[in-house]
Structure formats: structure tokens, C-alpha cells
Design a protein around this nucleic acid. Structure first.
Length: 561
RNA sequence: GCUCCCGUAGUUCAAUGGAUAGAACAGAGCUCUUCUAAGGCUUUGAUGUAGGUUCGAUUCCUGCCGGGAGCACCA
């Protein structure tokens, strides 16, 4: 049982109250470690009753106005530090989601198209959420879903057939498609050929492209520290989906204009709108594919929840599709969750591969690396060490800039302003962690001492570090919490707290800041100081917590920087 | 036109219906003969607007103003 629950139980028992109440951390740490709001009439009486029945974890109960504030005891703090030291880099894990089987789908770049910074944003969020729900005890599988057929493939294959290399094929093909009517018709015909799946010369080129894509995807995932348990393809989901939809025409789906098969969301609860599932040419649309995908996933992994991470431009699509899937596959009702995030925008507006106004992930990482290179140019480090720092710090800075805010909001991406190395930033956290590790290396670890009977603890005044360190678990829990509300509350940014990596970011930044102040004020390694071993223990606890938290964000920590 | 999201310092973001609305950047001023100065310390500055619910609203509800997204065969 964690401390918060323990205190709640104690309050409930002591005061004999039944209705739920909120036990929160006061905004200002000077007002204690926890507090709750009682009615003005009862506050004093409650305060007295609690004071008289204190548990060992509580040092002091104070009534201020209608707030009842609790101060944790020194014993509790040292115990909590001890616990962090025992758990090491695994600290912060909870059992909140134990027994849950969750599959999470994110990143999903399309073969042949560029892996741009929109994918990077989706990846950073998806990867972090996956790690957070895992840290909360869920059984997690990750998946990426790719469009393996369609015009984008035809455009690229057409270009490759002209001798254009894979990396440039899509952009080239797309340009030709838009500029020349004959080419356009050629590509449309090619698309049909590929769709029919006949083994031809073209098919070989196509296959070659897919292999290149798979390698490319693997490389970029490795750089972003992401792995996928499954990869899904639209051809397969389309086939499965189409079949399911057709079986339900007249029941859930109807025939629409021109022979299309549609779902009339207006006629189902909650009310949505009409969307096409099979188009008038008999081909499954994205909607039908989603039906098939939900089924395919379920057969591979019997999930309680399937999370799909996408940009919020797809909100209304998922609103309808989730209802339709719930109708046609009742066993999946309520198990699908669309986690939508804001869009990444350039100062010039929305990113568009059509106008060539895109920034690829690799070019962004490289640009950031150059900025980092300038900073470490004069450091006395080997080239190899520098390379590692460049990569880890650049990616950390980028991920931090994406994860620092609630995922519902757009990010206006301005290269100079968005990627920061100072203040609230990825490198700030990495630096604090590296610094702590560096101190630990110099310290004599065998002198770690947490025995409360030592005289030093009589004079030791609990620092803000101890007051924040034990909260990490609560933050991990909060970041992994989700609500199963109505359709509208499923969307991020609608006021619901759910799957929120930014809580981890905020917490770690605060912790790093407290540690940096501590470091500036205190000499940690000091043989003449009896408190030194405990300071070293605190430093170790900070290092573990930062490392663990950064891992939840998908951010690595370099050895030096 | 309809539906949905978003308006917090000059800028980029925080704030489970609670206490004096927090940071960072930018600006002003300090700080390395001490364990990593990508650091620390001091300082200026904000809830779009009008109502409502509440003991209490940045948070919930309604109107208005401003920004964004989506709206039948793309994904």
C-alpha cells in the first residue's frame, strides 16, 4: 500500500467518514506533504482527532483555516529513500494496471513516404505512453500499422521504375502525378496493377521498395529506441474488414449512393455521422480496414484495451469507427481507445508533403546534433564519446520538447525556439543525472548509510529532495491513468486526465531543479561531514529516479556530457 | 453552415474544483582556486470577454470574441 492510500485509510478510520475526499499535495511544500479540505466547522475537530491518533508516518497535523495539513515523519522519508535504493532504476513502478492486456499502436509511417517530424511526434508520445502503462503493471504489446497499397505506393514505384532511388521516389512521383496528366493516368493504372497483385516486373520493384522500407524503419526505430511486437498492413486489414462489413449489410451497414456501403452514425448511440466503409468500386476504405484491424489484433493478443495514437485531425473518424466496430464486433465494445494528440505545425502552417513543406526526422536530428556539437567542441572527450553524446542529447532534446506539454495541444515547431538545451529541456534532465552519476563515481559507495540511530539524523533537516522523491510513484500512476467516459471524453484535451507523459516531464524537471539547488548549496562528498553518507544516498536516489523517469519518456542518459 | 478542440506573463508551456496561478526562455543583476556553470541565486511580468453553478472557478455550464481541425467514397 502506498503512503497516500495509507493516510487516506487512517483518516477515514479515525474520522469515520464515508464520502470520498481528495488527499492532495499542497501547492506550497511549506504547507505540508499532504492536505485535505474539511468544512470550516469540522476542521478543528478533525485536526484534533487526527493529532491524537497519529500513525508513525505522520510527524505533525496542522489545521490552517479549513485545510488540514499533514507533515510526514523523518522515519518515513528515510524509509522511502531506502526503498528507492533497493529498487534502483526500477523505482516508480506500480501495479495500477496489473492484469490489463493493452495493445498500443503508434508511429505508423507509410512505406515509400518520408518519416517526417509528425511521425516523430506520434512516436515520442506512443512510445512514452507504452512505457508508462507498462510501468504501471499492464501487459503491453506495441504495434505499427502501415499503408502497403494505394496511390502513394504507385507514385513511388512509378518513379523507381524510372530509376529514381527509393528515398526520393515518392516526392518525385508525386510531383509528376500533379504536373502531368498523362503521368497521372499512368500511375492510376499502375496502382490498379499493384492492387490486383499480379506478379510482374513492377511487382519486383515494389517488393524491393518494401524491403528498403523495412530496413529504413528498423534503423529509425533503433535510433528512437522503439521496438514493435507487431506490424500490421492495410491489405490484410482491408480484406478482413471488408468481409465483416459485407456480412452486416442490412443490419448495421447500408447501401449508399453509387453502391458504396455506409454506416449511418446518426442512427446509433452515441450519435455520430455517416461514413463510407466500402467505396463504390467495392474497395474497403480506411474505415473498413480499421474494423479488420481491430479483429486481427484481438486474435493475436486478447486485449482489454487497444489504444491507437494519432493526430487529432482523425478524431471524428475514430468517433464513428469505434461505434461501428462496437456494433459489429460486440466483444470489442468499449475496448478501443483513440488517443489523439495535437498537430505539429511549422511557423508557415501545416506541414504538407504535397507542397514539399516537410522536415524529415533524420534531417531534424542531424540539425540538432550540429547544435550540440558546437556546445561540446572544446570538451576533452574522444570522438566516440562525442558521437554518443550528440545522438543521445539531440534525441533527448527533441523528445522532451514534444512530451513536455499535454498531448492534446498543437506544437508550433520553430527550430530555434523548440529545441532547447537550457532551462526546461531534455539536456537539463540528462545533465542533472550525469552530474549525479559523476558524484557517485567519486564517492565511496560503501559509506552509504541510512541507519536512523546515527547521531547525524538528529540534526538532519529533511530537504525538499526527500519531500519530492517519494512522490515519483504517484506521478507514474497519474501519468498512466485513463478514464473511460463518454465518446467525447475519450479525446485528449477534453479536460480528462489520461495517458499523460507530461506529468512525468514536469515532475522530473522539478526534481532535477531541486537537486541542482541542493548540489549548489551542499558539499556532498565530504569526509569531515557526518551527514555526507546520507547526502550520497540522496544523490543516488535522485540518479535512479531521473534514470527511471527518463526511460519512461524514451530518453536515454549519456555517460558523460 | 454543422461538429469537435484550443484561448494563462513579451514567448513556449504547467496548475487531480481549493491556500499567494507555477516554470522556462527573453530582459536586468550576481555566481566557477569546491564533487560537471548544459548549473545556481536575485528580479520585472499573465487566467480573451460577459454571465451562471459553488463556501471557493484557470478548471464545470451558457453566450460572445479570437485561433485551429474535421465534415460520403484519401489515410
Amino acid at each position: 500500500m502506498n503512503i497516500q492510500e495509507k493516510i487516506k485509510d487512517w483518516i477515514e478510520e479515525t474520522l469515520k467518514i464515508e464520502e470520498s475526499f481528495v488527499l492532495a499535495h499542497p501547492k506550497d511544500i511549506k504547507n505540508g506533504d499532504y492536505s485535505f479540505f474539511a468544512s470550516p466547522k469540522l476542521a478543528n475537530e478533525f485536526g484534533r482527532a487526527l493529532s491524537e491518533n497519529k500513525i508513525p508516518e505522520i510527524e505533525k497535523v496542522e489545521v490552517v483555516g479549513s485545510f488540514i495539513n499533514f507533515y510526514l515523519s523523518k522515519k518515513f522519508f528515510t524509509e522511502s529513500i531506502k526503498e528507492i535504493l533497493e529498487k534502483g532504476e526500477e523505482c516508480g513502478q506500480t501495479d495500477l494496471l496489473e492484469g490489463q492486456k493493452i495493445i498500443i499502436e503508434h508511429t505508423q509511417p507509410n512505406p515509400f513516404k518520408e518519416f517526417h517530424i509528425g511521425h516523430l511526434m506520434n512516436n515520442a508520445i506512443g512510445e512514452s505512453v507504452a512505457r508508462i502503462i507498462k510501468a504501471n503493471g499492464a501487459d503491453v504489446k506495441t504495434a505499427s500499422y502501415h499503408g502497403d497499397k494505394g496511390l502513394h505506393v504507385a507514385k513511388a514505384v512509378w518513379a523507381m521504375n524510372k530509376g529514381i532511388e527509393y528515398e526520393k521516389a515518392y516526392a518525385y512521383g508525386n510531383k509528376a502525378y500533379e504536373e502531368d496528366e498523362n503521368t497521372k493516368q499512368e500511375i492510376i493504372a499502375l496502382n490498379k496493377t499493384i492492387y490486383d497483385g499480379k506478379i510482374t516486373e513492377i511487382w519486383k520493384i515494389c517488393n524491393d521498395g518494401f524491403n528498403k522500407f523495412k530496413n529504413y524503419f528498423l534503423t529509425i526505430c533503433r535510433r528512437l529506441d522503439t521496438t514493435f511486437d507487431y506490424q500490421f498492413w492495410e491489405t490484410a486489414s482491408g480484406e478482413v474488414g471488408k468481409k465483416i462489413v459485407l456480412e452486416n449489410v442490412g443490419k448495421i451497414f447500408e447501401n449508399g449512393e453509387g453502391g458504396a456501403v455506409i454506416f449511418k452514425g446518426e442512427n446509433f448511440e452515441p450519435k455520430t455521422h455517416t461514413r463510407v466503409f466500402i467505396n463504390s468500386e467495392g474497395l474497403p476504405t480506411y474505415e473498413a480496414k480499421e474494423v479488420g484491424l481491430a479483429k486481427i489484433k484481438k486474435e493475436l493478443f486478447a486485449y482489454n484495451q487497444s489504444i491507437t495514437v494519432t493526430g487529432n485531425e482523425q478524431d471524428s473518424f475514430f468517433d464513428v469507427t469505434e461505434i461501428a466496430i462496437g456494433e459489429v464486433l460486440p466483444e470489442l465494445k468499449g475496448k478501443l481507445k483513440h488517443l489523439s494528440h495535437g498537430m505539429l505545425r511549422l511557423p508557415t502552417g501545416k506541414m504538407s508533403s504535397r507542397t514539399g513543406d516537410v522536415i524529415t526526422t533524420e534531417s531534424l536530428i542531424d540539425q540538432v546534433k550540429e547544435k550540440v556539437r558546437e556546445k561540446i567542441a572544446e570538451r576533452n572527450l574522444s570522438e566516440e564519446e562525442k558521437e554518443e553524446i550528440l545522438e543521445v542529447v539531440a534525441i533527448g532534446a527533441i523528445k522532451y520538447s514534444i512530451l513536455r506539454q499535454a498531448i492534446g495541444g498543437d506544437i508550433i515547431f520553430d527550430f530555434d525556439k523548440s529545441i532547447s538545451f537550457e532551462g526546461d529541456s531534455g539536456p537539463y534532465l540528462q545533465y542533472a543525472c550525469v552530474r549525479a552519476n559523476s558524484i557517485l563515481e567519486k564517492a565511496d559507495m560503501s559509506r552509504l548509510n541510512l541507519d536512523m540511530s546515527e547521531a547525524v539524523f538528529d540534526t538532519w533537516e529533511t530537504t525538499e529532495l526527500e519531500k519530492y522523491l517519494y512522490r515519483f510513484t504517484e506521478v507514474v500512476e497519474r501519468a498512466g491513468t485513463h478514464s473511460t467516459g463518454s465518446i467525447n471524453s475519450l479525446q485528449a484535451g477534453s479536460g480528462q486526465v489520461e495517458y499523460a507523459p507530461h506529468h512525468i516531464v514536469t515532475y522530473l524537471t522539478e526534481l532535477a531543479s531541486i537537486f541542482n539547488s541542493f548540489y549548489a548549496k551542499e558539499k556532498i562528498i565530504d569526509p569531515s561531514d557526518g551527514a555526507s553518507p546520507y547526502k550520497i544516498a540522496l544523490t543516488q536516489a535522485v540518479a535512479y529516479t531521473l534514470k527511471s523517469g527518463l526511460r519512461l519518456l524514451g530518453i536515454k542518459v549519456p555517460d558523460k556530457m
